[in-house]
């Protein structure tokens, strides 16, 4: 059995158990800061983790982190950015002015101190600071790629002393890149065939016999 402490409560669970499941056995109600229960994609189960013999407190997603003996865990509520970085769909369309809007919506981005707080905070090991710097220098597609696997847990929001909201900046870059540039030829052709009436559905035509 592995013994650890979660939110101040002792837990004793078999090896291989994830922190989330250990929390349930410790009597902690799983009603918030929990979601996908192991896939590690919803970003809800943010936790601070200190391991035996390590002075440093690290971040983790509790659903994909196995327990270790002597581990101390605290769950973290979602940290909202200090102010919302607001924009609308109409801001996404024009690639020529995308960089201007990045600077206007995320003015803090150019003030990055290069402290790598966001990098250390990211439980997915993304190069968050690099992504921020790419966006701030106008490389929207480069920034978008850095945040490919971001789960929007907002831990980098909590870590940034300049209130850049790095993951939201990264998502803005991703949305600008997609909405501004992606124009699939096959999709456009199919949309034309449908709107022109050339392609329709005969809902009565199908029988259960395979063709």
């Amino acid at each position: 059995m592995v013994n650890l402490t979660i939110d101040g409560r002792p837990a004793s669970v078999p090896e291989g158990t994830t922190i989330v499941l250990a929390a349930a056995t410790a009597g902690i109600a799983l009603t918030t800061n929990v979601g996908c229960m192991g896939q590690g994609v919803c970003g809800a189960c943010r936790a601070l983790v200190r391991r035996t013999g390590e002075p440093e407190v690290r971040t983790a997603l509790a659903c994909e982190t196995p327990v270790e003996d002597g581990m101390q865990v605290s769950f973290l509520d979602r940290v909202a950015p200090r102010r919302p970085h607001a924009y609308s769909e109409t801001d996404l369309v024009d690639g020529w002015t995308a960089y201007e809007r990045v600077l206007a919506v995320f003015p803090e981005a150019v003030r990055c101190r290069h402290c790598s707080g966001c990098d250390r905070a990211c439980p997915k090991g993304l190069e968050v600071q690099k992504g921020v710097n790419l966006a701030a220098s106008g490389d929207i597609a480069g920034a978008a790629a850095v945040f490919d696997l971001c789960v929007m847990c907002n831990l980098c929001v909590a870590a940034c002393p300049e209130h850049i909201a790095p993951n939201h900046l990264g998502l803005f870059a991703r949305r600008l890149a997609a909405a501004g540039t992606q124009r699939p030829a096959d999709l456009i052709r199919r949309l034309h065939e449908i709107t022109s009436g050339a392609m329709t559905i005969d809902a009565d035509a199908c029988t259960d016999k395979q063709p």
């Binding site: 769909e89 996404l92 369309v93 978008a144 998502l171 991703r174 949305r175 600008l176 890149a177 997609a178 909405a179 992606q182 699939p184 999709l187 199919r190 949309l191 449908i194």
Partner: peptide, 14 residues
């Protein structure tokens, strides 16, 4: 097809 276009317009990558 219109649904996929709607998603791209809101910034989803395929």
């Amino acid at each position: 097809p219109a649904s996929v276009r709607w998603l791209i317009e809101r910034g989803m990558t395929f």
